[in-house]
Each structure stands twice: as C-alpha cells, then as structure tokens.
Amino acid sequence: MRFPLLALLAKGPAHGYELKQALEQRFGGVLPPLNAGQIYTTLGRLQRDGLVTDDAVAQNGRPNKRVYRLTEQGEVELRGWVAEATPGTRLKDDFFIKLVLARAAGIAEPGELIARQRAAYLQALRELDDVAAQTDETTSLLVEGAALHLEADLKWLDLCERRMTNGSDRW
C-alpha cells in the first residue's frame, strides 16, 4: 500500500479519504474492499519515515483535516519504485506441491488430479472471458493478463501430464 499512496500523492496533495476514493475509482472492480483505517495507518508510517508530511486544515467544530503531500525523500523513494522492474510472481504453485506429494504418497492418481485442475482452470477461463466482455478498461486489461496466465497454466498441466503419466517412476 505504501507505493500506491506515494504515487497518488505525486499528482498533488490529498487527504486520506480522497486517496481511498482515487484507488477505488481506478481499481474498483479488482481491489478487495479498502478500509479507511488501512489507508491512515499506512499514511502514518509514511509520515514517520519522512516520506510524506501533512498540513492540518482547521475545520469548524471538527478535528483538523490532514492534507498529505510528498516530501523530497518521498519523491526519491517513489522514483526508485517506478524505475525498478517488478519481480515475476509465478514461482509459487500449490497445485504442483499437491501433485508431487500426493503421487509420492500413493494417495492419488496424477491423471485425476490434473484432470480436475484442468476443469477448474477452464471454468475460470470461461468466467474471466464473460467478465472481459462487459467491464471497464482497467479491469479488462487485468482480465486479459489473468486469462493468459490460465492459458499458460493449462499448457503446463499438459506437460505435467505427459511427463508424469508415461510410466516413469522418477517422481
């Protein structure tokens, strides 16, 4: 949450509620519901680390409203985040662990596990495709990414199937 907030503040100072709204507006379809507390906690940490500062605006009869803005150090951090490639994330796969261990323990046929997994991926692909046809641009672009991952997962299941069900006992 740190860097998304810094990135939003790069457009100009804003108070916490505006930041929450901006996130929801851009990613509403694909974000879990945000709670305001999460945003304020993060802003507090950013402030402690010297990356943002706040100007308190007095409000009649209510607590001061805090308007946050980036510090110079915050801008440097943000530029570093933008300039770095984001690490790939597809190296964790719970299914693969299940497949290898269930087979080793003799408690499941790899072919059956793979068939079940293939059905689940195809079903997900079907539903994503339905979504892609009727959503906003941001969500639809993300859906395309998820669909491509699923297609790769399906190809990889084919590979697992070929290597694990050809009578080899390497596994």
């Binding site: 379809g29 694909v30 879990p32 072919g111 195809l122 079907r126 539903e127 994503l128 998820a146």
Partner: peptide, 24 residues
C-alpha cells in the same frame, strides 16, 4: 478427460474478486 463448464454467474464483481484480486 472431459469437463462440463457453467456459464459465468453474471456477477462481475464477485467473479473478479474470486479469480484475481489485486494486492495493494
């Protein structure tokens, strides 16, 4: 093998959050 697919359930928000939540 073969599998039967269900049509999407029509609820976009629910489908999206089940299949691909962004983390922030």
């Amino acid at each position: 093998d073969e599998t039967r697919l269900d049509a999407g359930r029509g609820d976009i928000a629910a489908t999206v959050s089940r299949l691909m939540q962004l983390g922030v």
